[in-house]
Simulated assay, not measured.
Amino acid sequence: MTSDENLSTDLNASDSTTTETPSAKQSSSRRLLLLLGVLALMCGALAFDYKVARPSVQNAHDAVADLNVMHNAVPQFNVMTNQMVEEIVGKPPADTFKDGNYTVEVYSWQSGLPFRTYKLYAVYQTVGKNLMLFRLHKFNYELTKDVIPFPESTVMKATTEELAAYKIEEDLAAMESMRYLEEYKSSQSLYTPINVFKDISPKSSGNPPTGI
């Protein structure tokens, strides 16, 4: 290969490198802009979570709880119903489910991320035809059996000595009752009623009455 051919090859390579460099820079800039855009969206979502969504749940929880305390403190006020809670929250519940004998209404707020929501749970007892507010949960719900555990029933088994002592006490009580009964009967016999008028009834003399 001559020197002219080598020079031509070097020039072609230099030209191809020069033409590819702007395209590579443009692609790199696009990737950087995309990453910056995703980062900005994530920062905005986090800011919305902690500045809007979570405070909204907290404010609704505090407003309902404060009014419930006031209603419980004043006998003239009615109980907190689900209609009153809905009015305070400012929107209808997103979901309703049963937890044993309790009715749970769920209020939902959208977070900054499309797949995440923050929730307020209002738990009600049925009183007549109304649902009375029983408790509140924010963000996470706890089942009634976990919040108010019911004690397990226990069966007390008496020992042989305890059964024998109980039998003796029962026999003594029966004997005491019999003694009181006998004393009562004997005391009643001392007060047998006597007909004091049986000997003073008028007796017939056998003679007819005479006129005056």
Results as ranks from 00 to 15, higher is better:
A24K: 06
D99A: 09
N59G: 05
E86I: 13
T17R: 12
Q110M: 05
G100V: 03
A63E: 13
I200R: 01
T154M: 07
M1A: 05
G128A: 14
D146V: 12
T144K: 06
S14P: 00
T19H: 11
I200V: 13
M1I: 03
L34I: 04
A122F: 00
S187L: 08
S111L: 06
K203T: 15
Y107A: 06
Q76S: 15
Q83K: 13
A94C: 13
I88E: 06
E162V: 03
P22D: 02
E169L: 06
M70G: 04
L181P: 00
P75F: 08
N130T: 11
L131R: 09
N6A: 06
A73F: 10
S177C: 06
T19Q: 13
S28V: 04
S201F: 01
Q188A: 10
K157F: 12
E176W: 07
Q83M: 06
K138W: 00
F48Q: 08
S111D: 03
S8Y: 14
V104W: 02
K185A: 11
T9H: 10
K51I: 04
Y166K: 06
T154A: 10
G37L: 14
F197D: 07
S8A: 08
S3R: 01
L172H: 09
S8F: 13
I88S: 04
P151W: 01
N82R: 01
H61E: 03
K198E: 15
T192Q: 07
P93I: 04
A73L: 12
Y121M: 07
P209F: 14
A45F: 02
A47T: 11
A40D: 04
F197V: 04
V38Y: 13
M42N: 13
V123K: 02
I200K: 02
Y180L: 14
S8H: 09
S153W: 00
G44V: 02
A13Q: 13
S205F: 13
N140D: 12
E86P: 14
F115G: 01
L34H: 07
A122I: 04
V147D: 03
P92F: 01
T103D: 13
A164I: 05
H71D: 05
P75V: 15
V147M: 09
S186A: 11
A40Y: 08
Y180N: 12
E20V: 07
K203Y: 05
E87K: 15
A40F: 13
K167W: 08
G206L: 03
E87R: 14
L133Q: 04
T210N: 03
T160Y: 08
K98F: 08
E170W: 08
